[in-house]
């Protein structure tokens, strides 16, 4: 049976992908992109989960053998920051687009064609 974490993560990725591909509003597309990134992050941490173990912080009573895999957590920390930076960049571009075109509908944002 597929673990509920893997199932949830893949569903989030697919929901995000669906929103990016189908929605016409730029902001909704960006929300989709964000959901997709969240799904990927969830997938990454669930890869490192070892059933029954605790957070990988060395302290009284918790040694290296009772902790989950710490590497995916470092990866996710990096990936979250990157995701936020991308979203911030995309939102500022969306602002410029709204100023210049007066719309956020992707079907009307079509000045570049060749």
């Amino acid at each position: 049976m597929i673990s509920v974490y893997y199932f949830g993560a893949i569903s989030l990725i697919l929901i995000g992908l669906y929103a990016v591909l189908v929605k016409k509003n730029v902001l909704k597309m960006l929300i989709g992109l964000s959901i997709m990134e969240t799904g990927v992050n969830l997938l990454l941490v669930s890869v490192g989960y070892i059933s029954g173990r605790s957070a990988p912080i060395l302290s009284e009573g918790i040694g290296p053998n009772q902790a989950v895999d710490p590497i995916p957590q470092a990866l996710v920390l990096t990936a979250i920051v990157i995701g936020v930076a991308t979203t911030a960049m995309a939102l500022s571009v969306a602002m410029i687009i709204y100023e210049r075109y007066g719309t956020l509908n992707v079907e009307e944002i079509r000045r570049l064609r060749g």
Binding site: V20, V26, M29, L30, L33, M36, E37, T86, M89, A90, V93, A94, I97, Y101, I109, R110, R111, L112
Partner: peptide, 11 residues
């Protein structure tokens, strides 16, 4: 517009 296309695809 070009940048937005790039961001969505790149994301």
């Amino acid at each position: 517009e070009a940048s937005l296309k790039y961001i969505v695809l790149g994301g």
